[in-house]
Each structure stands twice: as structure tokens, then as C-alpha cells.
Amino acid sequence: SLLLVAEPEGIFAMPDPTVPESDIKALTTLCDLADRELVVNIGWAKHIPGFPSLSLADQMSLLQSGWMEILILRVVFRSLALEDKLVYAEDYIMDEEQSKLAGLLDLNNAILQLAKKYKTMGLEKEEFVVLKAIALANSDSMQIEDSEAVQRLQDVLHGALHDHEATHHPEDPRRAGKLIMTLPLLRQTAARAVQHFCSIKQDGRVPMHKLFLELLEAKA
């Protein structure tokens, strides 16, 4: 219940209508959107029960490892109602053609593969919010100071997922496990996305805001 309440509203991409469509414009829009979403997601993390009790250093380490997984999971959940399209924002939906134009066809196809899994399972909002918190708590940072505290956080969230499934899906005792088994594809896709945006950063043609840059650098 606390995670459902903590879930942030969607934000708008607001692409500049005066700039003609191009790969640079699309990537600039996405990087700006990601930067603003990251601010929102850091605020969200503070509402995960148990997260604020971690040391500041461990909170930072988990976010530095897991931020892209959180961004992608949010895009995926927003996209579940659509077919072969990714809802980066309510006003910024990418289809195959736009993905091609932005040079994001491979990455967006990987994200769509994840969306397809959740669509098949009928992922619910309750499951989505817990899974997202689990992705953060389980982001496997190498810098954790108090791994027992992080383990306790994982156990609480894992417990919440099991409780939800026991009450809402008693017909499928393996549902929680099935959801957990989607996390490797999320990890793999996030790594791809980080790699892609790191190379865009190296090119230097797309302006990026400071928080997005800071977190990309934490992954480099």
C-alpha cells in the first residue's frame, strides 16, 4: 500500500515544436526526460519502507546501480496497454519508425521484449511497484557498506510480493517466482541502455543534464 501511494505521476516530455524532427532532437528529448524522471525517482526511493534507514552512502550506491532499471521498468509499465510502442511519456510515444530515426531500434526492441513478458502475465500495478522497489534493493552494487541492512530491505519487499500473490493469485503459486525471473532481462536491457547513452555522451552531440550525466558516469 505504501508503494502504491508513493508511485509518482507520469511526467511530460514536451519536445520543442520549433525544432525539426531528427535523431538529435529525439535523443535530446529523451535525455531531458530521463534527467527529470531521475529527480522524481530519487524522491520515490525515499518512500520505500526501509530505504531511508540505510546509510546515505548505501542509498547512493543502490541508486547508482539501479537507476536505469527503474527508468526502464516505468516505461515498460506505461506501455503495457499498447502494441509495439513505448510510452516514454504520455506525450512521447515511440513506434518502430521513430525508434529507427533515433537510432534506438535495438534498445527499444529489447524493452518491448520485456513489455511482452509482462503483458502475457497481465502484470498488475501492485506487482509493478514492488518489482521496481526490488530492482533497486537488488541492484548488486559492489560498494554496499551494510549488506545485512540491504538484505533486510530485500526480504521485506520480497515478502510483500509473496503476500500479494498469496492473496490475489492463489491459483498460480509460482507467480512471484515468474516475476522475479523477469529481472535478468531488465538488468541486461538496462546495461544496454547505459552503454548506448554512454556512447552518445562520448559523441557529444546531444546535450545532457547534470544528474543524468552524473549517474551515467557512475556506471562508466
Binding site: V39, I42, G43, A45, K46, L56, A57, Q59, M60, L63, Q64, K210, L211, E214, L215, E217, A218
Partner: peptide, 15 residues
Amino acid sequence: KEKHKILHRLLQNST
């Protein structure tokens, strides 16, 4: 830590 000053600041903010 100096390298991650925005994340640090956002986490410290009470809101």
C-alpha cells in the same frame, strides 16, 4: 563522493 554531488544533495533533501 564529490563526483556524485547532485544525487547526494537530492537524497539529503527532506522532501
